[in-house]
Design a protein around this nucleic acid. Structure first.
Lengths: 138, 138
DNA sequence: TTGTAATTTTGTAACGATTTCAAAATTGAA
DNA sequence: TTCAATTTTGAAATCGTTACAAAATTACAA
């Protein structure tokens, strides 16, 4: 069995064709897509793919813990199959979402000492390196 | 002129009755409300208040920089009149959103060194102290 | 104070993302 | 091969948000 199918099976998800393709898309592209983006692109290969299937599949992936939701913007829900703790940077010029690493232990958090932490999401917005130079040389 | 009116005027917003009431609500309650919550509660005092006004007002507050959007959950947009850099913790048991402070310099961010940071949002989900003890003693 | 223009508020309609739901298609086991 | 269970599909419903035009309010000049 291929690794992606085994990964789904091990996560308690039956590896249907659509599920394999959607997870592969997330893992290969690493582009933090919206439902719209996934549906639009996969439609080229799977002409019958319905948007409902994309919604259902992603909901299942999130429930089973193999995908995380990115809420960096209030008007778009994005998805990420990289479930390791890492941050997301959105460039306000080109709208690209970048991954970044941060020292989780070094956060120095006050006021919520005795709380149990289950998920940490760090979002930063600004201007990426590429756009910064482009904008400067205009 | 009252302080809240002066604050609006200084921010370039004409202090209409509705705007004063909505900003006061945010500042007094500090409950990170949704549009729904603000509208429902103020309706007791202002029976003619329309939801559109709440939307318009909050959009203006955000544009003028006196309110920030909290996207800790993908199905609800919350608002906060505290625009200082601070984190938000959502209890997955009681759904309350808590503020917390964190050392901004202690983040130890890698991979996006030369990017310009404009906004930082740190969200943590888990179980709050109160719910933790309640759940343990059940 | 009155009249008029500008601004703000309101309510309805439109919109877009997401969910619901039942039928159709596919899969798996006997 | 047959039948039950699961998955996918597409249409309709729902929900949060926005667009828009009319009504109300405010500001200001005569």
């Amino acid at each position: 069995m291929k690794t992606i199918e085994k990964y789904l099976t091990d996560s308690g998800i039956k590896p249907s064709y659509q599920r394999i393709r959607i997870l592969s898309y997330l893992m290969d592209k690493k582009n933090h897509p919206t439902v719209e983006m996934i549906h639009k692109e996969l439609l080229h290969d799977i002409p019958t793919l319905s948007k409902t299937t994309v919604y259902n599949t992603l909901k299942q992936f999130v429930e089973k813990g193999i995908t995380q939701i990115i809420n960096i913007e209030d008007n778009e829900t994005r998805y990420d199959a990289d479930i390791s703790t890492h941050g997301h940077f959105k460039c306000l010029n080109c709208n690209k979402v970048y991954d970044f690493r941060f020292g989780n232990n070094s956060l120095e958090i006050s006021d919520i000492e005795d709380f149990d932490f289950l998920q940490t999401h760090l979002y930063i917005k600004g201007i990426c390196k590429k756009c910064k130079y482009l904008l400067n040389t205009k």
